[in-house]
């Protein structure tokens, strides 16, 4: 057991700090396992429709700007780095650094959402949001098949975006908590757990980016 955790408060149900840390870490990983399966259903739908409607998916994905997707990928990867540094600062008990790095992460997450907002509004303007107003004209491509691409695009990136928002809210709460408890040793467990969550959000995007923006053979 590292010396850093000896003075952390221990919940009444636990025997010691080590058991508490073990339990929280295992609990968070289990939660991430449920997240994997949560997104898993959508990935399965993607695989099925992608293999059925290959040509329509290739045609439809040209409506997405891979540069914006790529930019967002870089933004999220960078935010993962800043979050990892926030966790590191928490472990070595530097509360100001933790808040600083989390603020960076928060700003980057905000950038991600802003880019996403512009992407989404462009799709709405071009009648590419699925529904009665959906219009997609491309010679030889069934518009219904192309609409499936956008169904999945909005479902998967929308769900991912919701996770980004939840992450941002978590960071605000953690920062306030850290500030309020600034005179104590930094309780790094919540920061560590938020970090795990944030890296998972990054991880999902790592798969979403090629699936939607880089559909085979540009």
């Amino acid at each position: 057991m590292s010396t850093h955790e000896t003075d952390l408060p221990v919940g009444h149900q636990f025997e010691d700090a080590e058991q508490q840390l073990d339990a929280y870490s295992a609990g968070m990983w289990l939660f991430l396992v449920t997240e994997v399966l949560f997104f898993g259903g959508l990935f399965l739908a993607y695989i099925i429709y992608r293999t059925r409607y290959t040509e329509a998916f290739v045609a439809a994905h040209h409506e997405l700007d891979w540069r914006l997707g790529g930019l967002n990928t870089l933004v999220l990867i960078t935010s993962s780095l800043t979050m990892a540094l926030a966790v590191r600062a928490a472990v070595i008990d530097r509360w100001k650094q933790v808040i600083g790095w989390m603020a960076c992460t928060f700003v980057l997450a905000g950038c991600f959402m802003v880019v996403k907002y512009f992407e989404y509004s462009a799709k709405f303007e071009h009648h590419l949001f699925p529904g009665p107003n959906f219009q997609f004209h491309h010679p030889g491509i069934d518009s219904g098949e192309a609409q499936m691409f956008f169904n999945l695009y909005f479902a998967m990136t929308g769900l991912h975006g919701a996770h980004v928002l939840i992450g941002m809210i978590t960071m605000i709460i953690l920062a306030i908590r850290l500030y309020v408890m600034r005179n104590q040793r930094v309780d790094f467990i919540p920061v560590e757990l938020a970090g795990l969550y944030w890296h998972f959000v990054d991880l999902v995007w790592i798969f979403l980016f090629p699936l939607f923006y880089l559909v085979g053979g540009n």
Binding site: H4, E5, D22, S25, A84, L85, R88, V91, I92
Partner: peptide, 9 residues
């Protein structure tokens, strides 16, 4: 289990 800080590198 413990979280020894990794090097920033």
């Amino acid at each position: 289990m413990s979280f020894e800080p990794a090097k920033p590198q």
